[in-house]
């Protein structure tokens, strides 16, 4: 059961197209898991449709339609759908095969947009950040945010840390908890700069999250020295 959602302001920025690419990626993955927010986002699209209908019409150039029809004539017969690439129900594109990723249970059932992202980032390179935490950076075609998978081993504790920038965490597999609660797949968490937290994975399963971080993370806990590599969260 999903209990944590992006707020309506963020959904509106997503629906209107002003939310940054990396953040939108996380929102999109959440929408693919959350009927509640999917519905809200459809309503926000309807507002867009209403504003479109209400726009002040501006004449286009007289040749616009003719130009367009000419372009259409050069199209192959029958406008085929744009998405010829990912057949529904298939896993990530298999171009870069990596059997370890294929067997990884945490990666077995991901939202479509994350599978697509994974496809371009295979094979995943996991880096140990601390005894309980591994991360794998993901290329997303932008460098404003750092996007990564984080996985916490069963019952693993991550050193207390805070964030200098906004951070979104989307739980994809397993669950973790911190002082505020327990988070399960689909939960979308936004942390503002300065919020300190200390995630702990549940005992029965490891936990996989997608994280999108605006700025480097700094370590504040007394065990900070243990997790020095966290500083390499900073975008390369």
């Amino acid at each position: 059961m999903i209990r944590h959602h992006p707020d309506s302001n963020m959904l509106l920025e997503y629906a209107s197209g002003s939310l940054p690419w990396a953040m939108s990626l996380a929102v999109s993955a959440h929408l693919q898991l959350c009927p509640h927010c999917r519905r809200a986002s459809e309503q926000l699209n309807e507002i867009g449709g209403g504003l479109l209908e209400d726009s002040a019409p501006q004449a286009t150039s007289g040749a616009a339609l003719a130009q367009l029809m000419e372009r259409i004539d050069q199209e192959p017969q029958q406008g085929e759908p744009q998405h010829a690439d990912s057949p529904a129900g298939e896993g990530a594109p298999v171009s870069r095969r990596n059997t370890r990723d294929d067997r990884d249970p945490a990666l077995a059932r991901l939202p479509q947009v994350i599978r697509k992202l994974l496809g371009g980032n295979r094979p995943l390179k996991w880096r140990r950040v601390s005894p309980a935490l591994k991360m794998s950076r993901l290329h997303t075609g932008q460098d404003q945010y750092e996007v990564a998978f984080h996985r916490i081993s069963r019952g693993g504790k991550v050193a207390e840390h805070d964030h200098r920038g906004r951070e979104v965490t989307l739980v994809l597999y397993g669950s973790f908890s911190d002082a505020d609660g327990v988070y399960s797949p689909g939960d979308f968490l936004l942390r503002e700069p300065g919020e300190v937290h200390r995630p702990i994975a549940t005992q029965d399963q490891e936990c996989l999250c997608l994280s999108v971080v605006e700025a480097p993370v700094s370590v504040t806990g007394p065990l900070g020295w243990l997790v020095n590599p966290l500083l390499s969260f900073r975008p390369a």
Partner: peptide
């Protein structure tokens, strides 16, 4: 772009 290896397109995110 640090687009190397990124297959995600606009229609994947706003799908």
């Amino acid at each position: 772009q640090d687009a190397d290896g990124c297959d995600v397109e606009v229609d994947d995110i706003w799908d």
